[in-house]
Amino acid sequence: MTLEIAFFGVIGALVVGTIGAAMRISPAAPARAAATAFTEFFRNTPPLVQIYFLAFALPKLPGIGPHLILPAVVAATLGLVLHQGAINVEILRAGLQAVPEGQREAAAALGLSRLDQLRYVLVPQAVRISLPALGNNVISLFKNTTLVSSIGVLDLFGEANDVIAQILVSAELFLTVGVVYLICVTLLGTLFRALEKRLAFG
């Protein structure tokens, strides 16, 4: 369960991040404004509260609410996608900004269109610059999958939680679960550092 939520969460957050970042640098002011509002709101509110909102408040929307009763796992994943996606928007935008101005000029001087400048010159470099921060965000999303247990989805942690309720031997069990998470997080970290090395310039 943890792995599924993390998997869809990471993919979703990357998609949200990419679309959002594209909107934030678009020439259309309304697109920029919408993306900025989205990013700032979901970056600055707790993912747990977002999950609660999606799971328990959305269904109360007058009219369409009853159609919006999301299975707990969907609400939780969506909440993580929104929060972590908003952070990705910011990371990718900062990455694009960090590409030196001379790179855009050189690409423009060759006659590349705006889109091709982005596609072949700016985005590939921005992704490399953003990689460490994106990696941290993946790790943070993975850790945040624990929040899912709070609305009744069994993830790695929720399973431990249930067992405690019955046999009340939680100290070691929590430690075990914590260590399992820790190992996963360390593995993810190592993976990302390897990826950074591979993609480094030169």
Binding site: K143, T146, L147, V169, A171, F174, L182, T186
Partner: peptide, 23 residues
């Protein structure tokens, strides 16, 4: 440092609240 950064905050919180009393 890596340990406390690496484990999810919720696990830590549950441990301190549910786990410690058992010790």
């Amino acid at each position: 440092v890596e340990f406390f950064r690496g484990i999810p905050l919720l696990v830590l919180m549950y441990f301190l609240f549910f786990g410690l009393p058992q010790l």
